[in-house]
Design a protein around this nucleic acid. Structure first.
Lengths: 113, 113
DNA sequence: CGCTACTGCAACCCGCAGATTGCAGTCCGA
DNA sequence: TCGGACTGCAATCTGCGGGTTGCAGTAGCG
């Protein structure tokens, strides 16, 4: 599960993708509508939408003769929770290490993550 | 500030970088030490460390004759908070739109972003 | 005090991600 | 029914990110 963390982060790592997400966050739009606003072609946007959909950051539905896409805030929230958890574990680790450094007992150092 | 979101996400988007971060999360290490464990060269790790340091995910300090690097959980937490905030704003937006859709007022259909 | 190990910089290579153009299909609306 | 607009697929190009090798410097350890 945590293995897909780099994947979703990579999806968020592209400026154009962020731009698309931001727009979609303000309301559902079609690829063509986005293409009219953003400085890239419709096809490029289509690919970005594929990536975003793959990691669950957006969903798409047919509406009339076009396909509108909407941003899924919940998925971003899930990612946020995961990252926060990991960040806390790092600090905890450091605290434990400091404690160990001061304690005279050299206990099992290996912690399989 | 939010402009650097894609940057830090991109930094987290690389599997090798995650691997490095995970290791550093378990305790400070030098680039050479990491190179002995990871399947990439020391120089490659050095570049990754540069990227991670640039976005504040790690800090480096001289210790003896080597330079040890440590993961900064707080920075990851800050990112998490930011992402969570954005995610919530998306959902809020959608709720507002739904409300508008149900209101009987046929207002301007064009939503100029 | 000398050796060794760690660091930093530079040049180079390769693969892929991001973007483009072109075309064909389809379906809604007038 | 006709036309226009939106969608999806395919081929192609290019820049850059991730990786390697090599070398030189330096300073802590024994």
């Amino acid at each position: 599960m945590t293995a897909e963390l780099p994947v979703i982060c990579a999806a968020l790592g592209d400026p154009t993708r962020w731009e698309i997400l931001t727009r979609l966050g303000q309301g559902p739009q079609s690829a063509s509508a986005l293409a009219k606003v953003l400085p890239v072609s419709r096809q490029a946007i289509g690919k970005h939408l594929d990536v975003l959909r793959d990691v669950g950051l957006i969903e798409s539905e047919h509406r009339g003769r076009e396909v509108v896409h909407l941003a899924i805030g919940a998925r971003l929230g899930a990612l946020a929770r995961e990252l926060d958890r990991i960040g806390r574990s790092w600090d905890t680790r450091l605290l434990r290490i400091k404690e160990l450094a001061e304690s005279p007992e050299p206990d099992a150092p290996d912690a399989t993550d």
